[in-house]
């Protein structure tokens, strides 16, 4: 792989993260809400007695550096964030720092996200391609097209529907959580099965919501590929139907789909937040939900930062993989 291509992609990755961190800093300063006022309000609401409230506010302001000039705040924010990975302290779980709060949730989110996104991508594209292929049995085609409109249903409705159907009316799957409460934490087979069992419904609601999009867009991509001369030439060469389907049609039609995947990742992540809330799945989305409820600004910042980094990282990986999929895309600069 060409080093300059790699370097260019890495630089744009870093710049993306720096710019979004800066935007996040500006946006949080623009909100009329004062986190400390919010904290005091919460304390007052729970009946805590606040003596010398004004002094307390001033103390907190000093402690969190909010009395510093905005530029100093920005620089210390950026250096904490980038150099030390320090997102500050959680206001709700003070004095717990933000990072461990999020870090504990990342494996759940990442696992659910990766498995369901990849499964939806592969299955959706394959089904979409099969739906357009002449030798596909007709009943299968009808089933595929019946699946497609499901993607018009928003994530959260779909999740609620599945929850009601498969956890309440027919209690096949658990209502929520990522594992049976009080179970052992070891990585035994029973435990893994328990985790998978819990992940089926949230996973399914993400997969179903994404599937239709891939089915329909793959159908469009296949329609274009079917007009290509290499497909006719492959038929003229008497190649087997299955080979023409996989190696000639699907392989070429999936190229624009990979680009679409890169563009779609952000949507997938934000959709997953809602799914996690509905299934009380202990992922980053659930953490975000709790942070929003408690106005835990630093945790919110941390979660948003996590989303930005993961989307940027996924895009970077797709950028690096794409030239391997399409040899016409050059690694050399100017063309890449």
């Amino acid at each position: 792989m060409d080093l300059r291509y790699l370097l260019k992609r890495l630089v744009s990755f870093v710049v993306t993260i720096l710019v979004s961190a800066t935007l996040m800093f500006i946006l949080t300063r623009l909100t009329p809400n004062d986190p400390i006022q919010a904290l005091l309000g919460r304390m007052a609401a729970t009946g805590s007695n606040i003596e010398g409230g004004a002094e307390l506010v001033a103390m907190y302001r000093e402690r969190f550096g909010l009395d510093q000039p905005i530029l100093v705040q920005y620089l210390s924010y950026m250096s904490n964030l980038i150099l030390r990975g320090d997102f500050g302290y959680s206001l709700a779980y003070f004095p717990a720092p933000v990072l461990p709060v999020i870090a504990g949730a990342i494996p759940w989110t990442l696992g659910l996200f990766l498995v369901s996104t990849i499964f939806a991508f592969v299955a959706g594209n394959l089904l979409g391609a099969l739906a357009t292929w002449p030798s596909t049995p007709r009943p299968l085609r009808y089933v595929i097209y019946a699946l497609a409109p499901v993607s018009a249903i928003p994530y959260y409705i779909l999740a609620l529907l599945l929850l009601y159907l498969l956890a309440v009316i027919f209690p096949v799957f658990p209502i929520g959580g990522a594992r049976t409460a009080g179970g052992d934490q070891s990585l035994g087979l029973a435990n893994i099965l328990d985790i998978v069992h819990h992940a089926v419904l949230p996973g399914l609601s993400i997969v179903l919501a994404l599937l239709g999009f891939w089915v329909l867009s793959m159908r469009g991509a296949m329609a274009l590929v079917k007009g290509e001369s290499y497909l006719m030439y492959a038929r003229a060469r008497g190649l087997r139907d299955r080979r023409i389907f996989m190696r000639y049609a699907v392989r070429n039609a999936s190229l624009p789909q990979v680009t679409a995947l890169a563009l779609d990742l952000g949507k997938v992540v934000s959709g997953q937040v809602l799914v996690e809330i509905i299934f009380s799945y202990p992922g980053v989305g659930y953490v975000l939900y709790n942070a929003l409820r408690t106005a835990d600004y630093f945790v919110i910042q941390g979660v948003v930062m996590f989303v930005i980094i993961s989307v940027a990282l996924a895009t970077l990986i797709l950028d690096l993989v794409y030239p391997l999929l399409d040899p016409r895309i050059s690694y050399r600069d100017g063309q890449a």
């Binding site: 001369s229 290499y230 492959a234 008497g238 392989r251 070429n252 399409d326 040899p327």
Partner: peptide
Amino acid sequence: RQLRWTRLSYIPQGSMGVLNPV
């Protein structure tokens, strides 16, 4: 399918897009 290419082959008009690009 079996007859194509073993008994009957074809040279396309302009070979620009006939080979699989990937």
